[in-house]
Design a protein around this nucleic acid. Sequence first.
RNA 1: GGGCGCUUAGCUCAGUUGGUAGAGCAUCGCCUUCACACGGCGGUGGUCGCAGGUUCGAGUCCUGCAGCGCCCACCA
Length: 825
Amino acid sequence: MYRFDRQAPREQVFAIDTPPPTVSGSLHVGHVFSYTHTDVIARYQRMRGRAVCYPMGWDDNGLPTERRVQNYYGVRCDPSLPYDPTFVPPETPAKHPINISRPNFVELCARLTADDEVVFERLWRHLGLSVDWSMTYATIGRDAQRVSQLAFLRLLDKGRAYQLEAPTLWDVDFRTAVAQAELEDREMPGAYHTIRFAKPGGGFLTVDTTRPELIPACVALVAHPDDPRYQSLFGTTVTTPLFGVSVPVRAHALADPEKGTGIAMICTFGDVTDVVWWRELALPVRAVIQANGAFKPVTWGAPGWEATDAAQAQAHYDQLAGLSAVKARTRIVELLRESGDLLGDPRPITHHVKFFEKGDRPLEIVTSRQWFIQTMNERQALLARGQALQWHPEYMRARFENWVNGLNGDWCISRQRFFGVPFPVWYRVREDGTTDVDARLLPTEAQLPVDPSTDVPEGFTQAQRGEPGGFVGDPDVMDTWATSSLTPFIVCGWERDPDLFARTYPMHLRPQAHDIIRTWLFSTVLRAHLETDTLPWTDTAISGWVLDPDRKKMSKSKGNVVTPMALLEEHGSDAVRYWAAKGGPGVDTAFEPGQMKVGRRLAIKLLNASKFVLMKDAPVGPVTDAYDLSMLARLRGVVADVSRALDEFDYASALRVAEAFFWSFCDDYVEMVKRRRLADDGSAASAIAASRLALSIQLRLFAPFLPFVTEEVWSTWQVGSVHRAPWPTVDEVDARASGSADGRLYTLTAGILAAVRAARSLKKIPFSTPVALTALHLTPEHRAQWSQVRTDVLACCNVTVADDTVVRDADGTELSADVEPVVGG
RNA sequence: GGGCGCUUAGCUCAGUUGGUAGAGCAUCGCCUUCACACGGCGGUGGUCGCAGGUUCGAGUCCUGCAGCGCCCACCA
């Protein structure tokens, strides 16, 4: 039913770039929420006659999977090991992790994620997602690897991807580079330490620092060029405490006279500002922190580590070597106190520190060789792409622009990890056994995907791996976003199925949540811009988050996550979808079981109302009665409004409009026709025809939202699936409803019935007691309709119009717009 | 520090181009009536965050402020 028609011409295609959920986690209510939004749009477009390309992907690539596999099987990846085809993981994880090769590790990742993917698919089917499951992809799958590597090689060829040895943001626990997009600030306790530096002619100047442990890595001091306090020091050198290193005092506009003493240490590297100063002031490197976060061994007095008293520097430094940054800080404070170079006590502060979003310790900056994709010189072009993209809601564009304007470097795409797409690159090994990183060996496009740790470059043999004169593979894998940014290419068959690609790309819709605008949305726009010089899609619909009743984002760590399957089983999929669809585009929505109960009630009401309408059958004929025509005139407007809202991706408004009409249809119209249907005349035939037409239309209006109950009813009296039925149009209504009519007779009569019900309730008059209208105030709008109000219709409420009923015009705007009959027993 | 959004009934939220404040839930009451008790109908309930301004008229437009949330930002 949901199979994408690959023969459909491009104008009829509607292609959705589905977010592939991370399979190593579990799906939560937020997923159910946002994936429902997408499904409503997919179902609507399908009923409009579009060939909907709606795949599902699994994001099984990356760190979360790695961590899970390590724990689940008790293994650890050692890329230096050869593949062992006979390896079988132990039944229960061993006490000490078993080292296995990268291909073995990847096999285990694939095995574990395959199980998850079965569970995920079951949930999505239960929820009623109208996905074409034959198009499912995985981000670690063979084709995703081919696309990632091919796109990388194309960028390399164009000079848009490059490799560089440079200071890079580094997570010391995962021991990998990370990108700007993966950072988050966390508020941390810290302390200002006032340190003294010896001035050349005697005396001291003081510097405030939160990272005294980096004094051995200090390469200069810096103050603002206009700062009067330091004018005389610019161009001179001062001496670092404990280590006795001469460092220059420099001027740079980035130095903030307001912070600390107005003069700062430049260390290699304490933060990203250090990197800027270091680069722009052309300073030397004196790095102390290693990839694992520990202070590295240093021989003082050696080139680059000159000190006035090398022995003393060594004695001090040896107490730091091997320690982590935090422990080194504690130790150096003691040393500074002993030497008298620490003035006063450290002054506690809280400040923002950069973390890898998945990391536990603050990021360090470590110099390493990494791959980058150019972004900085595309910023203007990317802003223009963001302008051209249709955002729903519109204001989310600001997030994108905010991010693009805040970029401070090219995108680092290499990670020193294992479960990811490898870089399709080998390097020559020199005769002395060292790697020549400039002598790259690349595969042909036809060979992709390749794993350079097991595959061999053209013209070499496996025996030459790592040998002098031979080759080595690039050890790194790509950032997970380097693959995810290519989902439109993966889905649309880029460089694999040109016919499919031409029909589906650029795609139509990218649905996603707002927290990954800077990562997934941004990087996808970038890759499409660089590769095809287009936007990847015309529209993006941004969903909000599901908040718990305390208005906090629902998350596992807070222990407030509800299992989606249990939710679906308790309330029913239609009910949960109803709740989800009420959360409009971009709006964070409270988790509210009450709304699900309302959705369930709506579904049951649909069943019952359908049962009533379908009790009576009649030949399909024109609708002639004024009441029926008036009701259909209202429905005509509803069809137009619901369609317009869905065209604009505003599923929440669409549902509201359809629902409001349906309740009125049940309360008022169904009551109005109850007695008429029992007659055996043209009025009855008209009522039955109109009821069935209205039911058919309303079932189709609700089908994208409540796919199960609508299909259930549809299947009892229609051929085929409601989900393949044509979307209702105003033309369809006009074709059956002869003559022109408006909705006023319907609203007037509904108003009278509602007023009678209110009066009965207020005066406690039971339904079985007949009542008569004695007075009626009419608004000018409804004046002309009064003469059409029929007593046989009002009889459904057991109300009659007395001979002496007084009908009054509403006197200007003085009277209430409501019709206020006075009811007598 | 910059950006974006939100603030309307006890709760969750609608409120199109300015024109008498809306829905559902909760609460209270009524009703077995031939689709529906897994129900129906009705009632109560609001200085629209605050202060100015524009206007005949402001929940809506403008300015400022406050609170909340999110995104971003130079760890001295």
